[in-house]
């Protein structure tokens, strides 16, 4: 189980997160939606401490961290419970596809190379890129790179995978292949928190939607409720703008 309690984050005087509470059960797929600047990416990056929250409590499994007094050890413990898929993929440029997926297993989890290799190849098969195992990231398309990014996260077998707008730097024709992969692993019961602009995708894969604005959760609930009958005025307006963009195809 993952619990975020009263997460606050400020940059100087500017307050980005004003006390966020979210509970994620095992196997949940949470989609965080909201306009740009609503703090959804910051929230995601607070979970693995790529941004340091000023206040609050993060619990992932048996690791509980008081953000205000988080030690380096705490941060590392959280990061070893989570994995992230980045907007710009952030594959290790100097390593091959296979090495990218193996890196966390061998270096962080100290797994023997042979075993790590087996797992990594399995993960690459899952994202359909076994044939690219020995290529370098620069030789792949954006969509392929992002699928490797997903395999890299998946290989670690984390409690939760954090997706930070995984398709927003992709060319439109490449979005589909990545969404399909994410949908497939969601069906396997992997716990995920997804920040996205793909409304239709969020509706289809998530079992819980969180709508954020100005660093607050405005509304949350089941996808069908939020999409079909939003209660808050802001949520209604937001979804109205996106109604026409719902059509996507996998």
């Amino acid at each position: 189980m993952i619990q975020l309690r009263n997460i606050r984050k400020t940059y100087g005087k500017h307050s980005v997160l004003n006390g966020i509470n979210i509970t994620v059960e095992k196997g949940d797929v949470i989609a965080i939606l909201g306009p740009s600047g609503s703090g959804k990416t910051t929230l995601l990056r607070c979970i693995n401490f790529l941004e340091h929250p000023n206040e609050g409590e993060i619990t992932i499994g048996e690791v509980a961290v008081d953000c205000k007094h988080a030690s380096k050890k705490d941060v590392l413990a959280l990061r070893r419970k989570t994995a992230m898929v980045f907007q710009h993929y952030n594959l290790f440029k100097h390593k091959t596809v296979l090495q990218n997926v193996m890196e966390g297993l061998t270096v962080v989890q100290k797994m023997p190379a042979e075993e790590a290799r087996e797992i990594s190849l399995l993960m690459l098969a899952k994202v359909g890129l076994t044939h690219k195992a020995d290529s370098y990231p620069s030789q792949l398309s954006g969509g392929q790179q992002q699928r490797v990014g997903i395999a890299r996260a998946l290989a670690l077998n984390p409690e939760v995978i954090l997706f930070d707008e995984p398709t927003s730097s992709l060319d439109p024709e490449l979005v589909g292949e990545v969404l399909t992969v994410i949908q497939n692993i969601a069906q396997e019961g992997v716990t995920m928190i997804v920040v996205t602009h793909e409304m239709g995708f969020a509706r289809d894969i998530s079992n819980h939607i969180v709508f954020m604005e100005e660093g607050r959760i405005i509304e949350e609930g089941k996808p069908q409720d939020i999409f079909n009958a939003p209660k808050e005025e802001r949520t209604k307006q937001f979804f109205k703008r996106f109604t026409n963009e719902w059509s996507y195809s996998i």
Binding site: F49, R79, F86
Partner: peptide, 8 residues
């Protein structure tokens, strides 16, 4: 960041 995210 990617290195941190996998726990390095």
């Amino acid at each position: 960041e990617a290195a941190y995210s996998i726990g390095m």
